[in-house]
Nucleic acid binder design. Sequence first.
DNA 1: CTTATTTCTTAACTTAAGTGAACGAGTTGT
DNA 2: ACAACTCGTTCACTTAAGTTAAGAAATAAG
Lengths: 190, 190
Amino acid sequence: MENTLFDFIAKYISLTEEEKKVLLSLDLFRSVKKGTTLLEKGQRSKDSYFVLKGCIRIYYIIDGEEKTTAFYTEMDVLTPHCVIHKAPSEYFISCVEDSILTVSNSDMEAEVNSKFPKFEIMCRMLSEELLAKQQLDFDEFKTSSPEQRYLNLLQKRPDLLHRVPQYQLASFLGIKPQSLSRLRARILEK
Amino acid sequence: MENTLFDFIAKYISLTEEEKKVLLSLDLFRSVKKGTTLLEKGQRSKDSYFVLKGCIRIYYIIDGEEKTTAFYTEMDVLTPHCVIHKAPSEYFISCVEDSILTVSNSDMEAEVNSKFPKFEIMCRMLSEELLAKQQLDFDEFKTSSPEQRYLNLLQKRPDLLHRVPQYQLASFLGIKPQSLSRLRARILEK
DNA sequence: CTTATTTCTTAACTTAAGTGAACGAGTTGT
DNA sequence: ACAACTCGTTCACTTAAGTTAAGAAATAAG
């Protein structure tokens, strides 16, 4: 479990044993049950998440309807908008499966970053990388139809289709659950 | 012009006169004519852009059709995906209007960052902020209809509607130019 | 095990976006 | 000044997503 975290970090910087100890002393690991709400709309949380195992999602409630816009699975990092912009959260975060996460708050991160410039560098690299990747995802979404998006998801994150309820997948693809059902039936006919 | 840049930087860190001189000595400013292509698909560029004046866009060519997915105007920063991932670019970048930009390459940035940790911090803050903001934009796109997206753009970036050709706006909104025309006519009837 | 609740699918109908084509306005180039 | 081209709009038609509703299947609760 610790190793999953250290392997992830190793993609960006190399840590000494000392530094690893410091990290572990922060007591970051959390087990979270399926269905748990990690962040509510309106809250001013400072917590960021790294998924070691399991799956969490971002969702909105718009006109009384749940709209899931993002899923985070193994090795994904999620820093909520409200943490960065110090404003009440526009969305909810909840646990799709029983999960193991690291939870770190921004004050703590600021302290670690100032003590170990390495971490600052890692954070910069990571967020630059995520920004560029998300840009591509957004572009792909804009330039394709719901059916193409579904087929694309089938290629890129096939696990999601089984791990996650259809109605959450539907809004993730920007459509209604009924449309997703129909779309899948249409594809099978071919 | 230099002041626009320094004002932007001042939102994140404070610079000494010395540091400002170093920045200016890098000769970052460029004037670019409307229609100029800054980045071509397939290129392995290392250049990032900051828009002081004017407008640039990202576009793809898919099945022979131009698909514009993003516009960058005054005070916007653009680091192309290929710079971060060191891979050939998937998209083009071109100048929508005569523009004034700063152009900086990633080697230079790495050097500045290592000499002035302040810059490293600024880059981290900036990309975290952009990532969180883009996440919200993406969410809003997913959860709304083309018409809602258009009305939303009318609120948030009304200037774009006049600065940019309709067919580019259409793909930016995820639809065809004909649909945008129709949609606007529909709104006017109300 | 049975009941209740949630989730998924199907269907009929409505609405809006995609498609192909035509036309006029504006621009560019010769 | 004229032809060529680009861009925006409109129209008729096709296709797919939204909506409303009902029923089947799977899950959770008693």
